[in-house]
């Protein structure tokens, strides 16, 4: 039953590897960014999962509540989400510029064009 106990971690790891695989295996620059997004999101889950305790409340001291969840990972991940959004936005902006400059967003085609630039 170990797998069931840690199901949230298994899912996070599956997403992590899936995202990384897409980044490596896909030649389309937008699809790579999608993979990067999945990869980053999986890390959010790795942070959030252990912070949540079943039956616990927010850490507000009041009579009758003794079990608290840790709020710090949520705050950290809020920051990480902002960073992730900025990264994906910048990445997409670069892809737009690459499309303007090369006329394609396929990795192989861009590599061929870039090699042509080298020869000149």
């Amino acid at each position: 039953m170990e797998i069931v106990d840690y199901v949230n971690y298994w899912i996070a790891m599956l997403l992590l590897v899936t995202g990384l695989f897409i980044v490596i295996a896909r030649g389309n620059l937008v699809k790579k960014l999608v993979g990067l997004g999945i990869f980053q999101t999986s890390v959010y889950l790795i942070y959030i999962s252990p912070a949540k305790i079943l039956g616990a409340t927010a850490p507000i001291i009041a009579p009758g509540y003794t079990l608290y969840s840790n709020p710090l990972p949520h705050v950290l991940i809020l920051t990480a989400i902002v960073v992730g959004v900025a990264t994906i936005a910048l990445g997409l902006a670069l892809v737009v510029r690459i499309h303007e400059a090369f006329g394609t967003i396929e990795e192989d085609a861009i590599n061929a064009l870039a090699q042509g630039d080298d020869v000149e």
Binding site: L36, G91, L94, V95, R97, I98, A101, I110, A114, D117
Partner: peptide, 12 residues
């Protein structure tokens, strides 16, 4: 124009 692609690769 290769600067754009270099930047993208570094971003990834």
């Amino acid at each position: 124009r290769r600067a754009l692609y270099a930047s993208y690769q570094y971003l990834i």
